[in-house]
Design a protein around this nucleic acid. Structure first.
Lengths: 396, 396
DNA sequence: CCGAATATTTTCGCAACGAAAGTAAGTGGC
DNA sequence: GCCACTTACTTTCGTTGCGAAAATATTCGG
């Protein structure tokens, strides 16, 4: 499927561990690395030497100022040459394809979007290959392509079910690989965003971490032991049946009073429209709620309460070290932050640790970046796909 | 604190992995072990030899009948000599101490209970030491003592806070070690039960596993990656603030309509008593509900609905491979199983995988057995305590 | 008795690690 | 400027633990 069994760099297990540690946790001296990886100082000399020779790592300018003027020989931080390779990430929506070029660190160095005029798999692959070609011209050291799609994705290659593209079992990775000759990884869009945040974002270094996205729908991603829990369920409409208020609003999607019905952007717009008869944008609703409009304030307040309840329950059951709110609908937090906090408190034990809640406004390029992170993982980590055997046994 | 840094057997990492695999997953041939541990056949010969010589493992009677009459040289299963050591487990309740003697596999070989007449820490330690002495006489190869207590336990040694014993910062492990000279591990009772089920019970070999106990209170235990998530929160009254029905019953403990108020044994008894004025036992309530008494049927039905909602949310958020219901209050499942199932369905996505729900009636000796499992883990695994650094960073 | 199949043991070589000693490059005291 | 002292890194060397492959063991089916 994903064409490459091995990583694109032949690294030993130890070398790979060093590479990933530096990639994810920034410039680190050999001593730091030894401590973090539980290895001896000698091993670090051995492991870093070939990485530096191959050009993947460099000794950074030592003048880069350690604030602490400690004694002794100054340490020599090592960093990844993030620009040594570039990666492509795409996010496919109903009518657009958003593309980004990123470095190894997943910093976006270019953006490129094109309208999606056909949902025909072959045509979509054509478009992606075309966009890849345009971007590859400017960035020759392209190493791989990641594609994020809403829906169920299998083996990081086949779109099993996508409601908005109306696809079933489309081998998208293969189609794009044929056309570009590059390794391609396809994944559910929420999953991709979660991986990006786990490696390079809010969840960096955390053991238990939850991502909740609010937008056209709700998305839920769970990271345990530093690894995302793969499960088909969350890709099929999370929160439609999570009833927060049995007497809550009835909207076109989601059960009455469900998290989806109370919290998503379309549901909130629907509620206001149903009450006032006018078509209003999400931003206008938030603004009017902030300005004191009673109708909007009620809807937004209820949404905030629903979000707080959701967050509290996640905290109760999963006990994550952090919950990240992402997506287009997180503007809610600014207007209804108080309602959220109150609802969190009401649904938590008073002695429970406060929930570390972080909000990140994300646009479609962030989703595309998430897809790029997946290729980085596969290529750097040589990570075999494990989506199918996710519920395997384990040794204690 | 727990006195022993090292395991009681000096095992290398590889040997320990073999020992644990055999301990938890029953008799296994060297070939099986090689596959499970990802090692070569040669390594298994090397690793098992000293374990057999030391008497920890034996080659079991090969006549033990493999149903499959395959060709080739028959495999030679290895098993742990479960009786080579024994362990003591205690569960301390308000007015009783329940004790068990177990084998390495945590099979109970003897029981011994005594009333608890004083809550004075020194007296409790005296009683435990006395009981240990009585049991040690009959089981000379006693290797360690595990103690389960309701409340917050720190460092597997100090009872930080126990509401029913009215203890604060009591170094119980030290007190009992002084008197017995044996290694002692103290742990929250729910945590101990969870560990026991993870190693030797319903959660054996599972990666994500949840234990929910229903009794005087609610208990929640989360196992991720085969390891229990340590968190002080769950020991401080789980479910009191998990509001299932804002208009639900108001009981002495738990917020109105909370899981605790709707689901625990005392709360159900309180509701029936408040309505009828009579003192009724939990079993009588269940029987009357089954027999059609409308009052009891309503209370029990609501409890079943609450349980189903709880289970569904755990499944939604944690996606465990199994949820185990344990404790004295699980009789509810027999009477209100239908209500539970309906509520689970109503709160789950229709396409979501069914929740694997298992029920286990447990008495106080099961809780004591859980405590014994903790010593087994500490001694066999040489597991350092990590309750305080549970929220540590990790390497990817 | 002779393969064929499967399990285990033996042998050998290698990869990777840690310990310890050595070297490098700074700071601060005089 | 020189001399401790501290910390970072490198070199050397011996050990450990593993896999590969060949050898041996034990069964079944003819």
């Amino acid at each position: 499927m994903t064409a490459l069994a091995a990583s694109w760099l032949p690294l030993s297990a130890g070398e790979r561990a060093v590479a990933i540690e530096v990639l994810v946790h920034g410039p680190l001296s050999r001593t730091d690395l030894a401590r973090r990886l539980g290895l001896s100082a000698g091993s670090l000399t051995r492991l870093t030497k070939p990485l530096i020779e191959s050009g993947l790592l460099v000794e950074t300018a030592e003048g880069a100022a350690l604030p602490e003027t400690r004694q002794g020989r100054p340490s020599q931080p090592l960093d990844i040459v993030a620009e040594s390779r570039t990666f492509l990430g795409f996010k496919i929506t109903d009518d657009m394809v958003y593309g980004v070029v990123t470095t190894l660190r997943s910093d976006i160095v270019a953006r490129h979007d094109r309208p999606l005029t056909s949902h025909e798999p072959e045509r979509v692959a054509d478009l992606l290959a075309e966009m890849a070609g345009e971007l590859a011209g400017r960035h020759p050291s392209l190493a791989g392509i990641g594609i994020g799609v809403g829906g169920l994705v299998e083996h990081q290659a086949v779109v099993g079910e996508s409601p908005f593209l109306l696809w079933r079992d489309v081998p998208l990775a293969g189609l794009v690989e044929e056309r570009t000759g590059l390794p391609v990884v396809v994944e559910n869009d929420v999953a991709a965003l979660v991986e990006a945040e786990t490696w390079f974002g809010a969840g960096r270094g955390l053991d238990r971490f939850v991502v909740l996205t609010i937008g056209a729908g709700l998305g839920y991603g769970l990271v345990l032991g530093g690894t995302r829990v793969r499960s088909g369920e969350e890709d099929r409409g999370f929160g439609r049946h999570w009833i927060i208020d049995p007497n809550g609003p009835l909207t076109p999607t989601g059960e009455r009073g469900s998290a989806v019905a109370m919290l998503t952007v379309p549901a909130i717009r629907y509620q206001v429209q149903a009450a006032t008869g006018r078509e209003v944008t999400y931003e206008e609703i938030l603004a009017q709620a902030a300005a004191g409009d009673p109708m909007c304030a009620r809807v937004v307040g209820e949404a905030g309460r629903a979000l707080g309840t959701l967050v509290a329950q996640i905290a109760n059951f999963v006990m994550p070290q952090k919950i990240l709110l992402a997506g287009e609908g997180v503007g809610l937090m600014e207007v209804a932050g108080r309602a959220v906090d109150d609802a969190v408190r009401a649904n938590r034990h008073p002695l429970a640790a406060p929930v570390p809640l972080e909000t990140k406004v994300s646009d479609f390029h962030d989703w595309a970046r998430g897809a790029a992170v997946l290729v980085i993982q596969v290529l750097v980590l040589g990570a075999a796909d494990s989506s199918t055997q996710s519920d395997q046994l384990h040794g204690p």
